[in-house]
Design a protein around this nucleic acid. Structure first.
Lengths: 255, 255
DNA sequence: GCATGTGTTAACGTATACATTAATAAATAC
DNA sequence: GTATTTATTAATGTATACGTTAACACATGC
């Protein structure tokens, strides 16, 4: 796969990045003792680097040396190295000796891979949720997310819609009670997060999407695992296909 | 989940472990410069520790300090720490400060979680393989694995059967071409490897299992993704259920 | 100009030093 | 004897030191 185009939104993003670099706010956030839990420095480094990637403050292709990260985060190289092992294992960055850490772009092919996995895991989660059933509260949470998507669409609030959509999917997975599956799904949501964020306004208005969500919730409510699994699978296949088409249509080879 | 029983096979395993501890073979293996690739010390530590876990040389519940591992592997603590981060992220061990690394037992509930995930991912892999098709060579490899399972069963060679079974499943996943999915499946195979190994002679002779494999291969060969996915899914649900029942029947709460 | 060789240097990879503190041992109180 | 407090110590977590060597800069040859 030849790298033909890397999306950077350079001027805006670079500026925000430098601005944040100048401020001590996020450095302090990485360094502060949390009042409830004292986080180790590797944990802090991991969280802060990841936050910057997810929020596109470190866009794909960003290269930083261990020593630069250590300076940025006001700690020695050791905890930075430990954090990078974790981030590297999660597919968020690659680590090349003497070149440092590079934030991994997400290609069209990457997205296909990721969505194939999410399709499988989320569908299985829907099946499991339908088998074990939901409490009234859990059902209420799912339904609330669906309602919020509707409301966001009425207001043309795409960001609101995306947040509620994410919440719906992640709640669904969490309710299946399989911690490993939930962690896996979170990992792949993280890997694909920036693509969804950056393509949010390039996609058609997600009008029919919530019909799918409602159908999945209804299948779950009547404890029909096969239907829940299939409906969610179809939904996931549709949204995955659409996202890939957007990447292709706009020539976004690496985000 | 209260820990009521931890399988140790203590006398045999302990003995082998100590014997191996005494020899310098595996230490040298971890230390030797490979003639093709010079492995970093964290990589070596990771591989050697993992090998010992998978081969039950470090059985579940084994506790070792960083310094002990460093001595064992003839290196300093730093690469050991780095290896443990990876192993911990893969769910093979847990790391507790001042208690060291502990090889994680795999409970009945863990196995249910793991098999739910494998069911989802392998079924998706079967779907993808059927869509993209197989080369003659790939088809030959799958068929060879199935044939070897048959032959192993004729000879009552359970180990041979298990190896061929593993090869079948992992090839199937590899042929779908999704590297992330393959890596995930490998991780969960690793987590459940010792349970399969240790229950191999407790299970009924896997007579009908290969019928399932053949049916999956046939569906793939005629490029029928829905059939491939469903057949493999049913196969996986069966084998997962059976394995869990064995754990329950023999009171194996943690392996 | 391009290709090749040599020298320099800095980014690791790894070992070691040091500060922190959780866990354990010992002392004390009842 | 049991419960509580205090002292000790060793296992981290983290920083730093040092050796290795890949990457780069510069020189040389064609």
């Amino acid at each position: 796969m030849q790298q033909t185009k890397t999306v950077r939104f350079a001027s805006t993003t670079r500026k925000l990045f430098e601005s944040k670099n100048m401020s001590s706010e996020s450095v302090q956030a990485a360094r502060n003792t949390d009042t409830k839990i004292k986080l180790s420095l590797p944990d802090r480094a991991y969280r802060e680097i990841k936050r910057r990637i997810l929020e596109n403050e470190m866009p794909s292709g960003t290269i930083m040396l261990e020593s630069e990260l250590a300076d940025l985060l006001d700690m020695s190289r050791t905890p930075v190295r430990e954090a990078l092992i974790r981030l590297s294992n999660e597919g968020m960055v690659e680590v090349r000796p003497r070149h440092g850490m590079r934030v991994l772009p997400v290609s069209r092919d990457d997205m296909i891979e990721i969505y194939d996995i999410l399709t499988a895991l989320e569908s299985e989660a829907a099946d499991l949720v339908a088998r074990r059933g939901l409490s009234e509260q859990q059902l209420g949470q799912l339904t609330a997310a669906v309602d919020e998507m509707d409301q966001a669409l009425e207001k043309d609030d795409l960001t609101g819609w995306a947040n509620a959509d994410e919440r719906f999917h992640l709640l669904l997975v969490e309710f299946c009670g399989n911690k490993r599956l939930t962690n896996m799904v979170n990992t792949f949501w993280d890997q694909s997060h920036r693509v969804r964020l950056l393509t949010l306004r390039l996609r058609p208005k997600p009008s029919g999407s919530n019909d799918d969500h409602r159908a999945v919730v209804a299948a779950i409510a009547r404890n029909d695992p096969d239907a829940a699994r299939d409906l969610h699978r179809q939904h996931r296949l549709k949204s995955g296909t659409m996202l890939v088409e957007i990447l292709e249509k706009h020539g976004l080879s690496n985000v």
